[in-house]
Simulated scan of single mutants.
Amino acid sequence: MGEFDAIRPYDDAEVPAVLARLLSDPAFLDILTHFRFPRMAGAFGWLLKPLIARRLRKEFAGVSCVSTLQDKVEYYVDHTIERATDGVTYTGVEQLKAGTAYLFLANHRDIVMDPAFVNYAVYHAGLPTPRIAIGDNLLQKPFVSDMMRLNKSFIVHRSITGRREKLAAYQLLSAYINHSIRNDCQSIWIAQAEGRAKDGDDRTDSAILKMFHMSRKDEPFGAVIQSLNLSPVSISYEYDPCDQAKARELYIRATTGTYSKAPGEDDVSIAQGITGYKGRVHINFAPPVSEFVEDTKQLAAEIDRQILAGYRLFPVHYLAYAQWTDADPTLAVPVAAKVFPADELARAQAEWQRRLDACPAEHRPFLVQQYATPVRNQYRVKAGLAL
Rank of each mutant, 00 (worst) to 15 (best):
G264F: 11
N284I: 05
H282K: 05
Q323G: 02
I303Q: 04
D201Y: 11
K198W: 00
F44Y: 12
S231M: 07
M1V: 06
I225N: 01
E74H: 15
M214N: 06
A207G: 10
L209E: 05
D25V: 07
M40F: 14
Q95V: 01
Y10K: 03
R354A: 14
P142Y: 10
E14T: 02
T89C: 04
Y237I: 07
D110P: 03
V118T: 11
E294I: 00
G62W: 11
R36H: 12
F37K: 10
D243A: 08
C359F: 00
R364S: 00
H179Q: 09
E74A: 13
W46K: 12
T373A: 13
G42Y: 04
D201E: 12
L22N: 10
Y102V: 06
H363N: 03
L319G: 02
I177Q: 15
G162W: 05
Y251M: 04
V224T: 15
N137V: 05
L367C: 04
E165G: 07
Y76N: 12
H34I: 05
D328W: 09
G276R: 08
D5I: 00
V144N: 11
D304S: 09
N107C: 08
Y379R: 09
E94G: 13
L356N: 03
D295H: 12
P334V: 07
T275K: 15
N137Y: 00
R376S: 15
D146A: 14
R380V: 00
C242Q: 07
S234Q: 07
P288W: 07
I81A: 11
Y371R: 00
P315I: 07
S24C: 05
L56R: 09
V18P: 05
A358N: 11
V63E: 04
I111R: 01
R203W: 03
L385G: 01
G87S: 07
S145H: 10
G135E: 00
E94L: 07
L385C: 03
T325N: 09
A101L: 06
Q226M: 10
L308V: 11
Y237A: 09
V268T: 14
D110T: 04
Q298W: 02
Y259W: 08
E165L: 11
P9Y: 06
K97I: 10
Q370D: 01
V112C: 08
W324C: 01
G222N: 09
I270P: 02
E165Q: 15
A322E: 15
F117H: 07
G257W: 11
L299V: 08
V289E: 12
K278V: 08
A116E: 09
Y239G: 03
G195F: 00
N183C: 12
T330C: 08
E294P: 08
D304H: 09
V293C: 14
P374V: 01
M148A: 13
P288F: 04
L299E: 09
A53R: 14
A332M: 11
Q171E: 15
T80C: 14
C242N: 13
V293T: 11
L308K: 14
Q349H: 05
F104G: 08
A168F: 08
E3S: 10
A106T: 08
